[in-house]
Amino acid sequence: MSLVAQQTIAIDQDLPSIDKPISQRQIDCYSGVRPRSIHTDPEWARKKGFAAPLAQGMMSSAYVSQMMVALLGEGFVKGGKMNVKFIKPVLAGDTLTMHGRVREKQPEGERTRVVVEFWCENQDGIKTMVGEASGLASS
């Protein structure tokens, strides 16, 4: 496995942010359309107290994966870890921005584990997801 050299990654380095406008059609594709679903049935979502259907939290975890693959490549696909907390609902029509910052580099055998703090904000600047992801780099 060819890993990114840890020397090319700096602690406190900000990762390029990723914008994600989320359409109902994308939510439908992710979750599969069915009645009585807060993701794909607008009437059911309203009944449960939401102004619009919710994007599945897991969609946001895919954005974390995208950011980590861009940073670490193979070392995230094989050896990556992710720990996510979904803190606010994401609605159809929202635009999320994914942010990440390198927090630490830890020796792991002959390799280095690069730990990234990440968070997602919606178009109003409200955090919808926070967490930590990591993957392997060469020492």
Partner: peptide
């Protein structure tokens, strides 16, 4: 509502 998720990619 999904509150938290952990992954380990093997």
């Amino acid at each position: 509502l999904h509150a938290a998720m952990q992954f380990e990619f093997i």
